Computed example of a mutant assay.
Amino acid sequence: MRISEVLRNKGAEVVTIGPEATVRELLGVLAEHNVGAVVVSVDGVSVDGIVSERDIVRRLHRVGAGVLDSPVREIMTAVVHTCAPEDRVESLRSTMTQHRIRHLPVLSNGRMVGIVSIGDVVKHAISELQTEREHLEQYLRG
């Protein structure tokens, strides 16, 4: 299955935040949209970084509550792994596992067209296993 099919099933909405927004504002966005990561983008279509709940927790542990008034750009991951709509979900599994990444923005011609999470990849794997099981059961029944 290709990433484009995953996006077709889940939708292409990507939650973004500007790099100058505060971490406090970021927390509000994460809670409002019930997501674990947000793409940092100046214009809503380019990827300038990504920031996750983990990033917040780690920085909060290191520097304390003062981080809440810091700009998102100070805690975001600036080098972001991405994928393309034509990439296969199976290759994403490997990338996510190898680099310990839970969210990958999907880019087409340099523009963000979606985001894929580890949950999407797991959902795909479960769906594949269920389909395979059904085929095997049908085969055994004759």
Rank of each mutant, 00 (worst) to 15 (best):
I3Y: 06
S4T: 05
S4Q: 05
V6I: 11
L7N: 03
K10F: 14
G11F: 15
E13W: 09
T16Y: 00
T16K: 01
G18Y: 07
P19G: 07
E20N: 15
A21R: 09
V23D: 10
R24K: 08
L27G: 06
E32M: 12
N34I: 12
N34W: 14
V35T: 10
A37E: 11
V38D: 02
V39M: 10
V39D: 08
V40Y: 14
V42Y: 09
D43C: 12
D43M: 12
D48E: 11
G49L: 11
I50T: 05
I50N: 05
I50L: 10
V51P: 06
R54A: 05
R54F: 10
V57A: 09
V57N: 04
V57C: 05
V57H: 07
R58A: 06
R58E: 08
R58V: 07
L60D: 12
H61L: 13
H61S: 08
H61Q: 09
V63Y: 14
G64S: 02
G64T: 01
V67S: 02
D69G: 09
D69F: 10
S70Y: 15
P71T: 14
V72Y: 02
R73G: 08
E74Q: 06
I75H: 06
I75R: 11
M76E: 06
T77V: 13
T77P: 07
A78F: 13
A78T: 12
V79K: 07
V80Q: 04
T82M: 15
T82R: 14
T82K: 14
C83N: 00
C83M: 00
A84V: 02
P85S: 07
D87I: 13
R88H: 09
V89T: 03
E90P: 00
E90K: 00
S91P: 02
L92M: 11
S94G: 01
M96S: 02
Q98I: 04
Q98S: 04
Q98F: 07
H99M: 01
H99S: 00
R100N: 04
R100W: 11
I101E: 10
I101P: 05
R102V: 10
R102Y: 13
V106C: 14
L107G: 08
G110H: 05
G110S: 03
R111Q: 12
M112D: 02
V113S: 12
G114I: 00
V116F: 09
V116L: 06
I118R: 09
G119C: 01
D120W: 01
V122N: 02
H124A: 03
H124R: 03
A125V: 13
A125R: 11
I126F: 09
S127Q: 05
S127P: 01
E128F: 15
L129I: 09
L129V: 08
Q130K: 03
T131Q: 11
T131E: 12
T131A: 12
R133P: 02
R133H: 08
H135S: 05
L136S: 01
L136N: 00
Q138F: 15
Y139T: 13
G142A: 03
